[in-house]
Design a protein around this nucleic acid. Structure first.
Lengths: 199, 199
DNA sequence: CAGCATTGTTGGCAACGCCTACATTGAGGT
DNA sequence: ACCTCAATGTAGGCGTTGCCAACAATGCTG
């Protein structure tokens, strides 16, 4: 493998090299600052080479977002401890989501961005749906155990999911101080479970 | 005013014309598809004219976002009925926010976007803060009336705000069907108030 | 009415996304 | 072993964009 003197004509794994470099740029300078030509320069290939692997700039962004969903789901799966009672279990999940959101703010924004290619949008929706499903499973299980009230599990999931997503985006955008948000997770989950009305 | 034959040298109100046209493009084709030169063409001025009113493309986007905050706050203020008990009051507000989010999805995405000019970011944060404050006032008032539990009002506000914001972005992004979200508002607010635990 | 700040115009520059034609490579079939 | 061919990378060009500088028209203000 003659890699020391002159780069071989074929890069070998340009596609993943592009994704890695793009992820870095996304993290550092945001999605709008991402340029295919600049990526090509950084990697050391010609300006048209990326076109072989992504028909579009948007196609690359879509791939990045899809990978983000995978990583998010894996993060949540790792953080989830099914042996815990509901409240600490949700608290842990929320913390994990919050950390992911603050660590990957630009990526999260991209994942939730409105303009993806129609077909990529389907994959996106499917990925999001899988994430929601894992939450729905937790809710359904808690219902079975009698830990939480009965009622349309989809609505319960939607409510919990909305709260989690909301706090995560607040943290990612700095609308709520990140550390304050993390500290407030216990309270937030508690409020979600016990409600705001006096008991 | 010689406006019939040849446009006068000065447009008269180019700044607001730009904002209006930009709003339309934003709604139709998204923020990324917005081009200063195209706006200038549509309005009928030279391609450099917008530069007199917005130093940057980002400056125009920032102005658009700030206007969005104003409109959102006005929408919420109009929808708010302080004479109502907490639950229907919150339900009404949530519905209004949901409608705004679905009617102005691209604008909302822009408003919550990460990359604004630093000074514009301050105004942005201030605008968001004002919106949160109006919600905080409702929470505080409900606490005074004994309608909801005591405790750090900031945390209660954060929780409610996160849920509202989450459901709104879900609806705007189509992750939850818009109509389903609207129909679910009653349930969502009810869950927020009563909690998920059995009583 | 003279001067000057405001607002618009023209032209140019570099960068970008995307396209087409061509070059190099590796893998599979005979 | 060869030959073909799809896959991958290169070179160049086109149209558009954001931004800048130099110049022109306008209208306010002393």
């Amino acid at each position: 493998m003659p890699m020391s003197t002159s780069r071989p004509y074929h890069h070998g794994d340009l596609r993943s090299a592009l994704l890695t470099a793009a992820e870095r740029t996304l993290r550092d300078k945001g999605a709008a600052a991402l340029s295919l030509r600049e990526l090509a320069r950084d990697i050391g290939v010609s300006h048209a080479a990326p076109g072989r692997h992504f028909k579009d700039k948007q196609a690359l962004l879509d791939a990045l977002a899809l990978d983000g969903y995978d990583r998010l789901m894996q993060t949540l799966a790792t953080a989830d401890d099914p042996t815990l009672p509901l409240q600490p279990r949700l608290t842990g999940l929320t913390r994990a989501y919050l950390r992911f959101a603050t660590d990957n703010a630009a990526l999260l924004e991209l994942m939730y961005s409105l303009k993806h290619d129609p077909d990529a949008s389907e994959q996106m929706a499917a990925a999001a749906e899988r994430t929601v499903q894992s939450l729905a499973a937790i809710v359904a299980e808690a219902q079975r155990r009698g830990e939480i009230i009965e009622g349309d599990p989809a609505m319960l999931t939607l409510t919990v999911g909305a709260a989690l997503h909301g706090i995560a985006t607040f943290a990612a955008n700095g609308h709520a101080d990140a550390q304050a948000a993390v500290d407030g997770v216990d309270t937030l989950v508690h409020l979600l479970l016990h409600g705001l009305l006096p008991r």
